[in-house]
């Protein structure tokens, strides 16, 4: 595992992405260069329109870059998808209301052709991983917003992708639930050793979670700073009061402000 730790998992070189809109072309990503290594927890932070979500979607082959190269596990994003390289968690849990929690988690497994027995076994395992053991038979409306989002994370984990892409997964939740889910996400990351790409617009969330913070700014969407966090892997919630934490948060804030000055 140790020598794997420096393997690049996601590599972007000179990446540009232009949307054609009714008001003319919009440069969503401009000359993005970034390397994400195996086991990294990378946060993308920036104001809306900075391209953080677009970049995540490009990694997931939901958007196609206009130019530049993007490799996921050494493959194109499209090939990587077919190899089940990543699980994607959206801002809304997006659980199917007509399926139970277990049924929702089985959705990708059904599509990917896992056997019935394996579906059941994997569902049990990921439910335990997100601390929803015993909730498999419930319907989504019977769960709180935070629990629903945990179920959607379980769904993304079910098929054992090495990469977990999370697009503002806790953005719609209240602060207290968010804190708990942040803690749990770190635990999950430590236990599974996955590479995580995490979009957020919360500075404390980005600093608390990440080993690498990518600060982005809008018009055109670009990377203005990449911060390698010196915080230890083990992070209790009160690490947020430590000097290092406040220093990193300060640097992120400065980066965000600098991006805005260029407007």
């Amino acid at each position: 595992m140790k020598d794997m730790a420096s393997q690049p998992v996601i590599e972007a070189k000179g990446l540009n992405l232009v949307f054609q809109t009714a008001d003319g072309p919009v440069q969503a990503l401009k000359d993005v260069n970034l390397t994400i290594n195996q086991g990294d927890f990378v946060s993308f932070i920036g104001p809306s329109g900075c391209g953080k979500t677009t970049f995540l979607r490009a990694i997931a082959a939901l958007e196609t870059p206009t130019s530049g190269t993007l490799r996921v596990n050494g493959m194109t994003p499209d090939e990587a998808r077919r190899k089940r390289a990543y699980g994607y968690v959206f801002q809304a849990a997006g659980l199917y209301p007509w399926r139970t929690i277990a049924g929702n988690i089985k959705l990708p497994l059904e599509i990917m052709g896992f056997s019935k027995a394996e579906q059941d076994e994997r569902t049990e395992r990921v439910l335990e991983l997100v601390e929803l053991k015993g909730f498999g038979k419930k319907f989504p409306w019977q769960l709180s917003g935070g629990m629903q989002q945990r179920a959607s994370i379980a769904r993304a984990l079910a098929f054992d992708a090495d990469i977990l892409l999370m697009d503002e997964p806790f953005g719609a939740l209240d602060e207290i639930v968010r804190d708990r889910l942040n803690e749990e996400t770190l635990k999950l990351w430590a236990r599974t050793g996955k590479t995580i790409g995490f979009v957020t617009h919360s500075i404390p969330e980005a600093v608390y979670l990440s080993t690498k913070i990518v600060v982005m700014s809008p018009r055109p969407g670009r990377i203005t700073d990449v911060i390698d966090s010196p915080l230890p892997k083990e992070r209790p919630l009160d690490i947020r009061d430590s000097r290092e934490f406040i220093e990193i948060a300060h640097r992120v804030r400065e980066g965000l402000r600098a991006g805005h000055h260029e407007d």
Binding site: R81, R82, G94
Partner: peptide
């Protein structure tokens, strides 16, 4: 979003 989710699973049109 729901359509994108299925795309990330590589779901066919029939699925």
């Amino acid at each position: 979003m729901q359509l994108d989710l299925l795309r990330t699973y590589g779901a066919s049109e029939g699925e």
